[in-house]
Design a protein around this nucleic acid. Structure first.
Lengths: 230, 230
DNA sequence: TAATTGCAAATAATCGATAAAAATGTTTCA
DNA sequence: TGAAACATTTTTATCGATTATTTGCAATTA
């Protein structure tokens, strides 16, 4: 409806086959429908997505740069591997980049941004947790809104990529597990409050802490699972 | 010859059409043969590269994620715009990310890395400046070698992307101009020395300074040129 | 038995052609 | 004149088919 608020959404009819394939494959990898290291055969994907080889290849090329897909010349594509090291790398980078982005966002704060932030938080809170994918979409929107006032499109893009890479691990660990022991809602609320107060140090600290806690949890989870990489 | 030293190089006969197109188009954009904002018509590129539409499209998709190309659905591709803001964004991010990468590299220093570093520096110094593209390739290799021991492939990738985006502006400003007033050789030497000494603070400071000086110069250059964006 | 070679099937990469969409130019009508 | 509607041309996006490459298997040899 309102194109200003959510520019990311695109009409299903207008979207190109490439665009649709991109979103579909990304979702399957992030959610875990396609598992890590799995071979992505063009034939299989064209059949599943009901489209030709060109859009599929193009989508896979785009996902390659998002680090969700690996391309090996003449040997096709495969879903990126997961590993503890990879997870820790993502977490560390995410903390560094989001810290920067959030501080810049707050430094450039406007009423318009503040209102968008409150709104995105409200929408996330209102969304029932049962619909996991719907909640995750709003959760991402909230986190990206925190950053999107930083004035640096490249930084935003990197943060968005890292967010997706990270969330993939959350799906691997299973959705519910983590949220039991923590009050995620309160954490979000606290981050929002600090941002609205334009207290960059506090907001950044809370945000990073939010990530580190999830990170520590997931790390614990990974150490209990298959130690063999791949 | 020695595959261990330069994994990036690929045999021209084995490389896929996509790979060749990717490198060719990237080069043209970075070097300025294709100017900022220019439309990238599939037909024109297939003719120029002597290949079909699919590899060209795939290459352009890859370049999209490198931020060198913009894709607009049903409206094709165009070379990314340049602007002062974009340049400053790149410079700032580069300083932040390379600072991090260099410190991690040094923290994980080994003799093997140290030797690779000395070697890449030597090769750059030995290369005559007349062959601009050859020198630039070795220059990039030296800078990337500084970072490539950081143990974070994603960070390396981001730094590499930002390097390419940045160097595009150097080409826009013209090659020679900048190097006249500064002793770039000495700066490189100093960075190398600090890195070999495993003095992270000093090395990072020198590296960032190296970039900031180039940045300041280019900024001065841009203010003298067309203020109208695009 | 282990390694090597040669073949066949599977799959990736690429091309050429077609369909869909956008841009451009032209005519018509107020 | 100006703008709206239409037709034409250009260009993008997609498909189906062809070609090139790899992979897996079996036969052969040391």
């Amino acid at each position: 409806m309102n194109k200003d608020i959510q520019t990311t959404e695109l009409d299903a009819q207008t979207a190109s086959a490439t665009q649709k394939a991109y979103l579909a494959i990304q979702r399957m990898i992030v959610v875990g429908e396609i598992s890590a290291g799995e071979k992505l055969k063009i034939g299989t994907l064209t059949a599943k997505l009901g489209t030709g080889a060109s859009p599929v290849r193009e989508a896979l090329s785009l996902l390659t740069s998002d680090q969700l897909v690996e391309r090996i010349d003449h040997r096709g594509f495969r879903a990126a591997q997961t590993s503890r090291e990879n997870f820790e790398e993502i977490l560390g980078l995410r903390c560094a980049l989001e810290d920067r982005a959030l501080r810049q966002s707050i430094a450039a704060a406007t009423n318009e941004w503040e209102e968008r932030l409150v709104l995105s938080h409200h929408r996330m809170v209102r969304q029932p947790r049962e619909d996991v994918e719907a909640f995750e979409a709003l959760h991402k929107t909230f986190h990206m809104t925190l950053l999107d006032n930083c004035g640096s499109p490249i930084l935003i893009r990197y943060c968005s990529q890292l967010y997706d890479l990270n969330i993939r691990y959350r799906y691997i660990a299973g959705q519910t597990v983590n949220y039991q022991s923590r009050d995620i809602g309160a954490e979000h609320q606290a981050i929002l409050a600090a941002a609205v107060d334009r207290n960059a140090d506090l907001a950044a600290e809370r945000l990073i802490n939010h990530y580190r806690q999830t990170g520590a949890f997931l790390n614990g989870f990974f150490s209990r699972m298959v130690p063999v990489d791949l």
